[in-house]
Design a protein around this nucleic acid. Structure first.
Lengths: 363, 363
DNA sequence: AAACTTTGGTTAAACGTTTAACCATTCTAC
DNA sequence: GTAGAATGGTTAAACGTTTAACCAAAGTTT
């Protein structure tokens, strides 16, 4: 009679035998070493152009590697070197032209240096953003490039990244209090450019549908708006300054709110193209002529601003440059091994793209 | 006198000493084992709820892990297990609502099962797509979910994935010849739905600005268009069937081409919302009333179709469902260990979203 | 009480690569 | 002709985790 112990034992021997049969293994550095009768270490060095390996050996190794269709095991080298060559990217969402363009440029720069990126979306949710950070840390990324969700106020999670010694670079939506690298446009100045443009078009009562002040960029846009009004001797009317989440629906709501005023504005500067879209819909529904009755300016230069009629004047945020600079800032960390690094705050000048919604009020 | 050899030797000893000084190491499974005076193996098993570890030990291990702020090293486990728990996603671009929504849903489903995704964009370029596949394979992804670039005709690169035994799931843009899982909508039927709708609105001369036939989905849309015309006893006029890349500029060009015809169409079915946008711009520039003079239907239900005036009728592609199904199809591979797996071809019914550009021709 | 099972672990090897340390030759210079 | 350097490698350990194989002690059958 076969006992339980014996049965288990036989089963194990069998499975071991079967395993030896299907030798579908991928080629490793060891295989190459065997073919050439050298050590695996020599192969590794040859593949990395180590000066202590002769040209002859290098050529041979590379040839055999090609023949055996060798693909280096990234996991093994990452484990050994303590570097994953992966960079995490966190954005509120990818389906905005700005973010997807930034991502594309980050990818372009980093790929050239042998880095890959992992993109995650927070959907503007603080919870999701924390999860994203966790999964990125779990995946052992070498760095994180992020733009914060609108909701995010508590920064302890970002501190977590810093405390692990992983480079963190923020762009567009970045909190200044976190002492960290940052790339973005000059929001304060952008507001000045917009107000100045509207004043030149003859506007005298300019409203601002902005984001919440706790987000630095929106705060800066608000401050710029206020200072620019002062500069042009326009009165600051608290009725005309509204904070919200800047969704399309918010744009609709807040525009309606402005239309209900006794003393209506003759121009509205909206801090996001999506909210500007909502505002435009409301204006059209109420048969208010844009720009003749009320001029409109958005922010972000999303492609759809050019598709609408009237097309919407907006601010171009230089996504290309922001993406490239963010990637380069990260690469600086990997190259210089200095522990303490000077912080990079790169502020780009934004550009006003003038379209129908704010031109030639007189005509 | 200190010789070169001696100098090098001393330097090495020094660096070794320094290394021992800054012990900023992350906590590993070994540290936990040391604290509890058990073996690292026991810790690993405890963390994975192995039945051979007592509840008491498990609790202790988890407590210590939390205290020491233990983060498992994903690279090490991936190397050991031969699984990276990373899934590669390739899309033509992320800044389309369809793709970003698909991605979001893939991510949602996979994250729950402990998988992360790496998103790459091909920008509709075959070259870039090949590079993406290479980097994904290099990163040792456990599977690839892809939608092919318009340019892609040569499928040898995709064969490369299959030959490595890595699950490949295609969605939306997927070639049937590659014997591989696929999730998409019923393009053939969608064309029928569109043509039927236009006929119901009183259209009698329906043009189609489509994609190139070598992409399966565009071929199916063309076939559906042709068969639907036959079904409704409408003549098929080769002048009215145009193939192109379906960019916004293409939409403009091809619409102009249609307007130059002696016998103009009274409806245009465009196989992409972006091209439909170009077509609409041209129609408006030429003071052609939409839908009264020419009705217009797009494809993809991009958000901007609802923003324009007139808003564009379009086909909703069920991005949510496609993303979820794609992720689930991949997960099936990881769960069942059967070598040969039945191929999944999931074809979803598409939904026509009727808007201003094609309604009430009579009014 | 002999024969086996169960419980709760331990040991050691393995994943594929990198790298510090070592070594045998050959070359160079005084 | 011998101290030292240069050349072209080799050896072995390490990265952190998982897992097959083993084992001691306590419990259960017959």
């Amino acid at each position: 009679m076969i006992t339980q112990t014996l049965r288990v034992y036989l089963l194990k021997r069998l499975s071991k035998y079967i395993k030896k049969l299907n030798i579908k293994k991928k080629t490793t550095i060891k295989d190459i070493a065997n073919v050439l009768n050298i050590s695996p270490a020599a192969v590794s060095k040859a593949l990395h152009n180590d000066p202590r390996i002769s040209e002859k050996t290098k050529k041979a190794v590379k040839q055999v590697a090609k023949n055996l269709n060798y693909q280096p095991n990234h996991l093994a080298s990452a484990l050994r070197k303590g570097k994953s060559h992966l960079v995490g990217v966190i954005v509120p969402r990818t389906n905005s032209n700005f973010f997807s363009s930034v991502i594309q440029n980050i990818e372009e720069v980093l790929n050239k240096e042998g880095y890959n990126i992992i993109i995650t979306q927070s959907n503007e949710s603080y919870q999701k953003e924390c999860n994203n950070i966790d999964t990125l840390l779990f995946t052992q990324v070498d760095g994180i490039i992020a733009s914060m969700a609108n909701e995010t106020i508590d920064l302890s999670y970002y501190e977590k990244i810093k405390s692990k010694g992983i480079p963190l670079i923020l762009f567009d939506r970045g909190e200044n209090d976190l002492n960290v690298d940052y790339i973005g446009i000059d929001d304060y100045k952008s507001s000045h450019v917009i107000v100045e443009h509207l004043v030149n078009q003859g506007c005298k009562r300019i409203a601002h549908i902005g984001g919440y002040r706790h987000t630095r960029i929106f705060n800066n846009r608000i401050k710029g708006y206020i200072d620019a009004l002062k500069k042009h001797d326009l009165p600051l009317d608290s009725e005309l300054l509204i904070e919200c989440s800047l969704t399309t629906d918010d744009g609709r709501d807040k525009m309606l709110q402005l239309l209900r005023l006794k003393n209506k504005p003759d121009a509205v500067y909206v801090a996001s193209d999506y909210a500007a879209l909502g505002a435009l819909q409301v204006l059209k529904e109420n048969n208010i002529r844009v720009p003749q009755d009320i001029a409109l300016v958005g922010f972000g230069n999303e492609p759809f601003t050019a598709m609408l009629s009237p097309s919407i004047t907006s601010i171009n945020q230089h996504s290309t440059e922001i993406g490239k600079q963010a990637a380069k800032t990260f690469l600086n960390y990997t190259k210089k091994k200095t522990v303490k690094q000077a912080l990079n705050k790169i502020i780009l000048d934004a550009e006003l793209i003038v379209r129908e919604s704010s031109t030639s009020k007189e005509q």
